[in-house]
Design a binder for these strands. Structure first.
Lengths: 330, 330
DNA sequence: TGTTAGCATTGTCAATATATGAGTGCTAAA
DNA sequence: TTTAGCACTCATATATTGACAATGCTAACA
């Protein structure tokens, strides 16, 4: 393990590099640690041997390696209090009691994205395990209906249905009544099964154009279980100096376009998970911070994407603040 | 005006540059026009005098100027038939009769974006002048309601309402009934007024907690009139060689983040509008093609964003095909 | 009058050279 | 264990060069 001075040195180098994005030289540090640059250099070369630091070229200053960041995050990083200004900004959201959970999260993350210059992602709001609490069908004209599904967690989904053949309004009404009776309380991702094995046999007996109606509703419901992804501050990460060449940027943008990419990473635990560089399977210079939340029985995940060179302490403080204030029932 | 050979020359240069992104030399053209490179050079320098061509440096080949593209689009461009392959791809969307107008447009534009390597934007689906056809309120728990508004054009909007004080279910029901009675048929952007001057006075008399309820519904409805913007193929434009430096790309991405940017351009007429370079107020190397549509009484705008160097004939053919097939009632 | 061949001119691009400065490693002495 | 001193290395910036791709211009030609 590292001795006291080595730990301090690593901390200084990581934090300086996070701030400036430039390799840190021995000379720059001697004032802080009260010793000469040569001493620092000796310690530096030890930290390089252990794989915590790297040089960009033979005569450059030192830069934290991936392992260095990992060590910093796991052992050195000390939790930071939110500063007053940041706290204040978030509090206006927390105190806005007319916001429901989803809006609270989305808005908070927008603010966090702005404060940290990172890209914020709100994933899931996973309504898969929400239960259907009401189905409503509203006719628009002869051939078009709108089906609206409301879940017990307050999620609303709607879909336009087009029915080619002439189907009597009565048949539609009957079908909807039946659906309402049979699938309320069913989890969204179970609805398909219930429709097929329980609803279909019944409407087949009572409703004339049952095939047409069944197909329309079936496709509508199976579309509902999809997850949503929202992103803000997409461009923030691109402003960082490590992404200053066109191809790099194009690569990142393309990866963002595939919204699943961040979702692919499996969480280890229920707290804040930090994936650095190659651990992200996204880009070697990127860190992704993910946090699962659960409040009012709703689950979801929020994530921040940015350069490895991010202010880990601030990010953690912000996410914890958001989670803390989420518990107080929204 | 230009004589026949000059017109041909400009056409060749524009189309060659669109294809290759490289300045066009006199030598490359002499075969096509059956004359020597010197003759071409003479004509080229005339076209340069009139401002239709430019050089990137003193001894380079010629590139169309903004004015050159404009002249090409206005006077030279000849409408092109869609090729079979492209037509086929779009037809699967056109023939999918279960799609309503919005979905038809979104999906078509996704395909067009892919076929042209441009960025597609669907703006508006402007529901401002839609009329309310139904208001539904579903209680989620003690303090939360969901308000759902359906318009006559089949748009659905929903919003979570939180009501702090204890309000009886009966009061809510009464209010919703009243709202339903009074605002059905009202245009979305008029709802605010009707609520304030017609609904409020009445609920003030009949409903106990009328202030709380009124405020909740008022904010909910006024949020509804907002317009939606969807984009696909954001990264396409960045792959073009004219945007091969990091700062350029960052600039474009930031501008996309401000979704209003494309909306800001006022249309001149109801057909296809082409804005080239500085006319876009977006970027001097960018062309924006916008088209308004109106079908089933619904209005909207679709746009394609790409380099000035885009295949204008193809883009026009595609948009016209989309518009044509929209008329046939969806 | 319009077209063309020939040639000097001009600028890009890529490769190479040169100078500067920041930072290191190593060694020997404190 | 720490440090001063020095040689060494590499990045960065700037300048130099030659090959090449075009052009403009001029004079001759149809």
């Amino acid at each position: 393990m590292l001795n006291d001075r080595q730990t301090k040195l690593l901390k200084i180098i990581v934090e300086d590099y996070i701030k400036t994005a430039r390799p840190v030289s021995s000379k720059a540090i001697c004032d802080i640690l009260n010793c000469s640059s040569a001493t620092i250099r000796n310690e530096m070369s030890y930290l390089e041997e252990t794989g915590l630091l790297e040089k960009t070229h033979i005569s450059s200053g030192r830069v934290p390696s991936e392992k260095g960041y990992r060590y910093y995050v796991d052992h050195i990083l000390e939790p930071r209090e939110l500063n007053g200004e940041d706290m204040l900004k978030l509090q206006t959201i927390v105190n806005n009691s007319s916001l429901m959970l989803d809006d609270y999260i989305t808005k908070s993350m927008e603010i966090v994205s702005e404060m940290t210059n990172l890209t914020a992602i709100v994933l899931g709001k996973s309504s898969k395990d929400n239960c259907v609490s009401k189905v409503e069908v509203v006719p628009i004209n002869e051939h078009n209906l709108i089906a609206i599904v409301i879940t017990d967690k307050g999620h609303v989904e709607h879909k336009n249905l087009t029915i080619k053949e002439n189907v009597s309004i009565n048949d539609i009404k009957q079908t909807v009544d039946l659906i309402n009776k049979m699938i309320i309380g069913t989890q969204l991702n179970e609805v398909g099964k219930v429709l097929e094995y329980e609803v279909k046999p019944i409407i087949a007996r009572y409703v004339k154009q049952h095939e047409v109606l069944y197909n329309a509703f079936y496709t509508a419901f199976t579309d509902f279980a999809k997850e949503s992804v929202t992103m803000t501050g997409r461009q923030n990460i691109l402003m960082q100096p490590e992404f200053n060449n066109a191809d790099r940027i194009r690569d990142i943008i393309s990866k963002f376009e595939d919204k699943e990419i961040v979702n692919k990473i499996e969480e280890n635990d229920s707290g804040i998970n930090i994936y650095i560089g190659s651990e992200t399977e996204f880009d070697d210079d990127v860190t992704i911070v993910k946090m699962k939340y659960e409040a009012n029985g709703e689950e979801g995940t929020i994530a921040l994407v940015g350069p490895k060179r991010m202010e880990y302490d601030k990010v953690i403080a912000l996410l914890e603040y958001i989670k803390e204030n989420m518990k107080e029932g929204k």
